[in-house]
Amino acid sequence: MSVAVRIEAVTKLFGPFPALRGVSLEVEPAELVALLGPSGSGKTTLLRVIAGLEEQNGGRVLFDDIESHRLSLRDRRIGFVFQHYALFRHMTVADNIAYGLKARPRRERPSSEAIRQRVGQLLDLVQLTGLEKRFPGQLSGGQRQRVALARALAIEPRVLLLDEPFGALDARVRKDLRQWLRDVHRRTGHTTLFVTHDQDEALELADRVAILNDGRIEQVGTPDDVYDKPATPFVCGFLGESNRIGVELAGGQAFLGDTPIFPATHNNGRGAADLFVRPQDVRMEPPGGQGLAGVVAAVRRHGAIRRAEVAVAGLARRLDVDLPSAIVPAIGETVGLKIVRATVFGPSA
């Protein structure tokens, strides 16, 4: 099978502290994969191990089925874009981009004319034509980011790795560059992994998202998969917003106290469980029904929608409920709540 990057049970220790605890992942050719996780989850460490900047304590990394240890850094041909770009500040933009080509052994080095042409093409690709004589210090953050990408692409990498590619940029530039990176990826077709702590970025850009927590991969899947079918409580709580409700599971029903609030048909376990409910998956109904009921404590604007906080007897935290525009509950009003969709993590069946 053709797998561009295969990561097998990689572990990495910093002193006694485990940064990666047995991480496995496969990346298909031309795929764009996001490594998403909170800070300290090990995502940057994983990227640096793949690049060969850190040496793993256990496990293997393979490129096109060749074990990475057999390859020198040069032969790995990895394009790496550092978080703060690591541009060579004493070199012009053109010299930065040409560096990897000029560093090749004499036999493999392109002619200086060929290098010049390649640099021109890359500048064109990253839309910086005309800036080749500038120094990194004379560029904006977004421009530096694009120089760093062009420099990494110059060596025709087999894999492109980006560490928080938009981390150092302000919000508007980030949005523009996201579109642009997606576009560049479509045109060049490089196998790409990027690290980010921003879920919007990961979900919008990536073909697949790998979610890391505490040195482990919690889930790998398409953006729709991880968002709609979270595999673990962590993913559930980390992606998007969720109400977490402690329930009792019995006979395929989730009970809050004696009230059945959600049919957990796929779970035959018994005992305490957690129900994760997104605010948009709770429907407000007239009171008096069989299910959940509560008192509206507050209504706030939340971007495009309005959101109510509903105090429910037996729950320490208020439930967040997104409101359709037609419904305007009064503060203090008693309402019924119907959970339309939820994810149950509970006693293993």
């Binding site: 060969g52 900047l53 850190e54 040496e55 240890h69 020198s72 850094l73």
Partner: peptide, 15 residues
């Protein structure tokens, strides 16, 4: 090539 494990008294580095 860096298959050899670095000695324990220093952290491995690619430099």
């Amino acid at each position: 090539m860096q298959t050899a494990a670095a000695p324990r008294w220093r952290q491995p580095s690619i430099l």
